[in-house]
Amino acid sequence: MKPDYLPTLDLKRNYRRVKEEIRRAVDEVLEEQAFILGPALSAFEADVATYLPVPHAIGCASGSDALLLALMLLDLKPGDEVITTPFTFFATVSAITRLGAKAVFVDVDPHTYNMRTDQVLERLTDRTRAVVAVHLFGQMVPLETIEEELRSRGVVLIEDAAQAFGSWRFVDGTPRRAGSWGDLGCFSFFPTKNLGGCGDGGMVTCGDDGYASHLRSLRVHGSGKIYYHDEVGLNSRLDALQAAILRVKLRHLDEWNEERRLVADRYALLFSEAGLLGDVTPPAALEGNGHIYHQYVIRCRERDALQAFLETEGIASRVYYPLCLHLQRCFSFLGYGEGDFPAAEALSSEVLALPVFPELTGVEQERVVEAVGRFYRSRQS
């Protein structure tokens, strides 16, 4: 009998673990009938602020809006520059572009897939207003290598932590969580995230009281007092039902992230035991990082053919990301071309995300690795 299809993420398994808790939380919101900016949201924002920890956590409608709201605080002008990575989700750069600033790219570390901080320092100019550091696939950029220089130049550090809620980095023996380090932190609660809701959702974190007050105004059309508008903001609020669900899941997040790390460790062991390390390169965790493996992304030979083979075996996989942002047609006006960021471009042709979620079993992982092994053995015959 053909085995069941193995998805990259099984949300149903995860839901079954907290089903009753979530239903009770949703029922409480339904009884209160306070759906917009109500007590459920305030409670979730307070929980996040305590967890990270940060002084302020402001819910919004999506991770994309979180980035947009954070950058709106800076009142960017044409000619202003924002440094970031070309190997990330589209929203990172679309937010910069939408506000009229220029995205300035740096290449990535081919082992961690994160932006090269040495190149960030090289790209700083008098026009640099911000750096958007993307904590990709669940592990953090080593921000200690750039924070002092950015601070001395008055450059705002924004953490794109959409894929990294709960990850951390040890610096001088102290853990610093993603989203608590920079001037602003941006999160997504899209259902597939480690901390995911049952719809869209996002959050911006910060330590500055002025930023926090401004963000709370911007998310309600730039209004401080109802029907009185100081500026043109957005309609971007995290609704109470999502907040209640996320509050339940936050209580379990550390346990689930630890289970993801165990899955990652098991993959690395299985690939090694199968003698596949010449064909497959598992993701590397930078020393000092608490990687939470939002995605388990390998580098591999003949990526597209391997992905097609896995599909025939009933195993899902995904490519993050098949075309770097500096090569996307809509960003051609930035003037970049093929070969400008060789490490990022190489990753786009080699990376493959394998199934990874807390409930993934060892037997299922063995099935994935055995299928990968069969593929490469078939190429040798």
Rank of each mutant, 00 (worst) to 15 (best):
P342C: 14
E273I: 00
S180Q: 15
E338N: 00
G278L: 08
K19N: 07
G207M: 04
C300I: 09
I36E: 09
R16E: 04
S188Y: 01
G185K: 13
A212V: 09
E231Q: 11
A46Y: 07
F89D: 01
K12V: 04
L218Q: 08
T88H: 06
G339Y: 12
Q365N: 02
L327A: 00
G166S: 07
H214A: 13
P283R: 11
L277T: 15
V372E: 14
A162I: 01
F35M: 04
G38C: 12
G179P: 15
R329P: 00
A34S: 11
S272G: 15
S42G: 04
T281K: 05
H294C: 13
E273R: 08
E31N: 02
L184F: 02
G224L: 15
K249W: 13
G337Y: 02
R127C: 02
S349T: 06
E311S: 03
T112P: 14
P78L: 04
K193S: 01
T85K: 04
L71E: 02
D75W: 05
L150K: 11
V54W: 13
L234R: 15
E28L: 10
I36C: 06
I245S: 05
S317D: 03
R151C: 03
E302H: 15
K2E: 14
M1R: 14
R251T: 11
S213P: 06
R237I: 08
K225M: 13
R13L: 11
E345N: 06
E81F: 03
F89M: 06
L327S: 00
F170C: 12
L6Q: 11
Q139P: 00
R216H: 09
S94V: 08
E311Q: 12
L74E: 08
G179W: 11
E122K: 14
V134A: 04
G63Y: 06
T50C: 07
D209G: 12
E345G: 04
L143D: 00
L124D: 07
L250R: 04
E159H: 10
V220Y: 07
S94D: 15
P175I: 14
K19A: 14
E302Y: 08
A344W: 01
A240D: 15
T88G: 08
P358H: 04
S378Q: 09
G288E: 01
M140C: 11
L277Y: 04
R260A: 02
E359K: 06
V297T: 13
L74I: 02
Q380N: 13
M140V: 03
Q365C: 12
A284K: 13
N289A: 14
L71F: 09
G197D: 02
L67A: 09
V104T: 01
Q242E: 05
E338Y: 00
L121M: 04
S62I: 01
Y293K: 09
D230R: 11
C324I: 01
T50Q: 15
L218F: 10
N14I: 12
F170E: 14
M72N: 04
G339T: 09
V319Q: 09
D65W: 07
G288V: 05
L9N: 06
R301V: 06
A161F: 10
A164G: 06
V372S: 05
P282H: 07
Y113C: 05
Q33F: 05
P191Y: 13
L74T: 01
N194F: 06
H111E: 13
Q119S: 02
L71A: 07
G339K: 08
W181M: 14
R301M: 15
G278F: 09
T361A: 03
I58C: 13
G166Y: 12
H252A: 10
A95W: 10
K19E: 12
D209A: 14
V369N: 02
H326I: 00
